[in-house]
C-alpha cells in the first residue's frame, strides 16, 4: 500500500488526466519528488523557485493542513491520503 494523492483539475493535464496518483514516500517532500519523477512538471506547479509550497496551494494530509504539521517535512505513511487544494474565496 502507498500514499494516495488526489489531483485537482488544474494539474491533471500534467498527470495525463489521472485524478489519483499513488506514490511511496516518507515525507511530503518525498511525495512531491516521487510525483515529479512520474509526471515531470508537477513540482514547479506546487512549489516556488525556493522549493517552498506556493502561496496559493493548500496541501492536506488526511484532512489536516500541512502548515499545522511540519510543512514539507510532514511525515507520510502507507494509507495516507493527500489533497492538493487551491485557495477558495470566502463564504
Amino acid at each position: 500500500m502507498s500514499v494516495t494523492v488526489r489531483i485537482p483539475t488544474p494539474i491533471r493535464r500534467v498527470t495525463n488526466g489521472e485524478d489519483r496518483v499513488a506514490v511511496d514516500a516518507e515525507t511530503l517532500q518525498g511525495v512531491i519528488q516521487a510525483m515529479e519523477d512520474q509526471y515531470p512538471g508537477v513540482k514547479a506547479r506546487l512549489c516556488d523557485d525556493q522549493g517552498e509550497i506556493r502561496n496559493f496551494v493548500n496541501i492536506y494530509i488526511n484532512g489536516e493542513d500541512v502548515r499545522f504539521l511540519e510543512g514539507l517535512g510532514s511525515s507520510t505513511k502507507s494509507g495516507d491520503e493527500i489533497s492538493i487544494v487551491p485557495a477558495v474565496a470566502g463564504g
Partner: peptide, 8 residues
C-alpha cells in the same frame, strides 16, 4: 485557478 502557479 491558474494551472501554472495555482494563483486565483
Amino acid at each position: 485557478v491558474c494551472e501554472f502557479c495555482f494563483g486565483p
